[in-house]
Design a protein around this nucleic acid. Sequence first.
DNA 1: AGCGTTTCTTAAGATACCTTAAGATTTTTG
DNA 2: CAAAAATCTTAAGGTATCTTAAGAAACGCT
Lengths: 193, 193
Amino acid sequence: MEPIDTLIQHFRERITLTDHDARYVSECFHVVTLKKKEILLHTGEVSSHMRYIAEGCLRSYYMDEEAREHIIQFGIEGWWVNDLYSYLTRTPAKQFIQALEHSIVLQIHRDTLHQLYDRVPAIERFFRFKFEKAYVALQDRTLNTLSKTAEERYFEFRSKYRDIEQRVPQYMIASYLGMTPEFLSALRKKTTT
Amino acid sequence: MEPIDTLIQHFRERITLTDHDARYVSECFHVVTLKKKEILLHTGEVSSHMRYIAEGCLRSYYMDEEAREHIIQFGIEGWWVNDLYSYLTRTPAKQFIQALEHSIVLQIHRDTLHQLYDRVPAIERFFRFKFEKAYVALQDRTLNTLSKTAEERYFEFRSKYRDIEQRVPQYMIASYLGMTPEFLSALRKKTTT
DNA sequence: AGCGTTTCTTAAGATACCTTAAGATTTTTG
DNA sequence: CAAAAATCTTAAGGTATCTTAAGAAACGCT
């Protein structure tokens, strides 16, 4: 299946699109191919696209003042990745987005998307849903970070994202969960034995 | 000014509404008056309304297995409060929403809002914006929790929400920031001296 | 297959943050 | 205005998590 067809299918699982609309929508997206480790969005750029992962695995992360990386999100095929903050506020990104595997991303420019909102209202509804879901997921994450121990966070991550756990290095999971790789390693040893 | 007028003004700062639409929108909202400490949403209920604070101050919080409260959000006039998770997924709320002062809230039922989306598209756009902003704010919060020390979080909170800092007890700020009240107290002493 | 790079583990010492408990202060209520 | 309730502080001892450093294992490229 062509990358763009996976996207249309993705839309159609959530909203109704006529074939005519689907064709129009397809034309609004561009394909970007990324090699492993290639960077899709750099800190300092303004993110002007919404991005759908048709294939592969990416991460978004930011670097703090001490040049430590903090992973904000992983994404695999069927997910969206972006520095939404930058995209929505049109300010320079504080995040990087990087391919962890060879990946294919479909992206649409903000201006094109806004036109699409006017022409195909179902798409605006889709993105409202999308932001709702994103919000809910983030809130879960925030509450987890605030109220759970490192150990609890790790085991919840494992049961929720087994597919991701098996595709990304352990030290990146540690970063995502807000702990050091050493600590995660110790945790695993403790509970595996 | 009537509570409902503050809401219409709030909408009009972000989207365009004809007078006709504004009148229609006004009729969709209901006024709820809350005494201090009164609870607007209980754990276990499904949240079916979007809620705008016309006046007062509220908090949403959840209780963990050990019956400890974790504050998720504060809200004052001009803000929206809700357990969005419950509202969006129609599952029982895990949060409480409680008035910290005498408050006036305007709320709209989900079904009414969905009708409104169809009748007044600008309102759908408004809520898309709203979810976007909510997402961005939450992401900031999540990253802060993961990458900053308690001290940094506190001083950022102070500079960002000076108005809220002065209206809510310190132990609730500690809860919001994910630290114990004792630790916050010690922090303040250390840096005030 | 072999070498460099990436990833994971181990361990010791440090520190940020928590728990408990009690008393001091401030605010609310009758 | 007094009593009760809510909030804030202090202090001692404990625990979770971090830092640093070094070596081991796995992986990826030529």
